[in-house]
Design a protein around this nucleic acid. Structure first.
Lengths: 215, 215
DNA sequence: AAATGTGAAGTTGTTCACAGCT
DNA sequence: AGCTGTGAACAACTTCACATTT
């Protein structure tokens, strides 16, 4: 009988949306810090992040008490605590599978490493196909995936293979020990409960816009 | 007195999540059709889309009654009605601004046109910079943006400029008449109420994964 | 005086359960 | 008998309002 997905223990039950907003808060906090601001009120930070202030306070409250009444929050301390919580306080290795158009772009995308993720290697069925010279990382054949994941303790993967192959490759990733998949393929992946999938579907995102844009 | 944002009239008040799921349903329906299946129950379709069946029925109910009790839904009819609703029944022109790494990749991404969106032109401050030969569409200087948008009745834009320029470019887009922006820049954009912004932030998505992946 | 932390109220979205068609 | 459509129950998330702390 489908066991009720008993979310990871040792962590309180945090709404996914809260986790998502924490990422936004860090970005705002970093900007504040860059501007030499060291203390911020929930009102001000919420404003920058585009949410209401009680929302922000509730979000932070899931993890403890970080503010000083009458004063606000310490910017650096908040950044630190969010990084700890998200696991971005140390560099995390990520593999990418499927080095086509999108995969290539993502490999040279600086946005990831800036946030503490290193896409150090990629895998593709055609590992030696002609590629953009901007791609500096090695591209290995699929057979090397499992060993690589084990050796470098890789826990996350970026999946940008064609939809027909997505499920199969996802299985290989899970088998190899990957716990999180950022899925760019337009497919609903089936994975075990303990594995997390984040779907990024740009066509759907555009379609969504299309709905709201109609006159 | 902050007027209560009285969402677009003439359309019932549809949850954003419902609109999002409709896109997923279409994709499942298309696969069914490709397999020669012409009728489907809410149970089966919901299963394929990864949701519960009452969810699916509620989602569809916002727009009318489409099913036949005792039988199910007509696949083609459902596809048609969703396309009508989303505005994807006819090809829609889209402009892209910021032809860097990511922008280049998105321009040669086949996923968009397959769903009825045509990225026919792009704009960049360095419109004549050396680019990947796979980019077939023309890249114009920013000054031509407004005219192009007006001439081709462009209502949607893909924004992939660096974060520092994002707000400024967004203003130009809105000024030119764009009603929907798919924003890849890691910035919270300020736009008028009637303009819709869809943020796609891949670094945040990875960070999010990172949280759920921790042991 | 200012701003956090939080119980309670409000709102939105999901699931259930079943009446009502076909 | 089977499956949709939907009101009612439920759950999740957001906002409010205010007691509490600095």
């Amino acid at each position: 009988m489908a066991a009720k997905k008993k979310a990871r223990i040792a962590r309180p039950e945090i709404p996914r949306k809260t986790v998502y907003r924490l990422s936004i808060y860090t970005r705002c906090l970093q900007r504040l810090l860059a501007n030499g601001i060291h203390t911020v009120s929930s009102e001000a930070l919420a404003g920058a992040a585009g949410v209401k202030s009680p929302q922000l306070r509730k979000d932070l409250a899931y993890f403890g008490q970080f503010g000083t009444r009458g004063l606000g929050y310490d910017v650096e301390q908040l950044i630190q605590m969010i990084a700890d919580l998200m696991g971005t306080d140390h560099l995390q290795p990520v593999v990418l599978v499927g080095v086509g158009n999108l995969g290539t772009a993502l490999m040279s995308y600086r946005g990831f490493e800036k946030e503490g993720f290193g896409v150090h290697a990629a895998f593709d069925v055609q590992h030696d196909r002609q590629r953009d010279e901007r791609v500096k990382q090695p591209v290995f054949p699929m057979e090397k995936l499992a060993d690589y994941v084990a050796e470098y303790h890789v826990r996350m993967a970026i999946l940008c293979v064609p939809p027909e192959e997505a499920q199969e490759v996802a299985n290989e990733l899970v088998e190899a020990g990957v716990m999180g998949i950022m899925n760019f393929a337009p497919t609903v992946l089936q994975v075990p409960d303990e594995v997390t999938v984040n779907n990024v579907n740009m066509a759907i995102e555009l379609e969504n816009l299309s709905y709201f844009v109609q006159q």
